Simulated assay, not measured.
Amino acid sequence: MVHRNAPLSETGRLRLAQCVVDDGWPLRRAAERFQVAVTTAARWSARYRAEGPAGMADRSSRPHRSPNQTPTRTERRIIKVRV
């Protein structure tokens, strides 16, 4: 499933990255051609260099960690009061 705000699908990202990495297009030109920001084109190109076509897959936007998460004990007490 494609993220609803994603400007390109996995295939579009792969094409953009191949233009930059394999064909030697400048980032700015590729970004204009595919109608994305230059930073986005750079990100996808870097992923393609590092991971190949597999790097173009959608990734989770879930945070890796949550330092201010409510302690489990407090969370359980809140749920108990609600029920």
Rank of each mutant, 00 (worst) to 15 (best):
V83C: 07
E75F: 12
E10A: 15
D58K: 12
E10G: 14
A54W: 02
T72Y: 06
R77M: 09
T40R: 04
W44I: 01
E32R: 15
M1L: 13
T39E: 08
Q35V: 13
T39D: 09
D22K: 03
T11G: 15
N5D: 14
E32P: 07
H64D: 14
T40V: 04
H64A: 15
V21I: 10
M1Y: 06
P71H: 06
Q18D: 06
R77L: 10
A57E: 07
A37Y: 07
A46K: 14
E75N: 12
V21N: 04
S61P: 06
L14Q: 08
H3I: 08
T40N: 02
E75V: 14
P7F: 03
S9K: 12
A57P: 04
G24E: 11
S60N: 08
H64L: 13
P7W: 00
A50H: 09
S45R: 12
S45V: 08
A50C: 07
R13E: 06
E10I: 14
V81W: 08
R15K: 15
T11W: 02
S60Q: 08
T74F: 00
E10W: 11
S60T: 15
P63Y: 01
A46H: 12
R15F: 10
T72R: 14
R76E: 10
T11V: 11
A31T: 00
R77F: 07
R4K: 11
D22Y: 00
S61A: 14
T40Y: 05
T74W: 02
A41I: 01
A17G: 09
R65C: 11
D22E: 05
P53G: 03
T11M: 07
D58M: 14
R62M: 14
V21P: 03
Q18N: 08
W25H: 05
R76H: 13
G24C: 13
S66N: 08
R65V: 03
R47A: 05
R4M: 09
L14F: 05
L27A: 07
T70C: 07
R4L: 11
A54V: 04
V2Y: 08
R49N: 01
S9P: 07
V21A: 00
P63S: 02
T11Y: 06
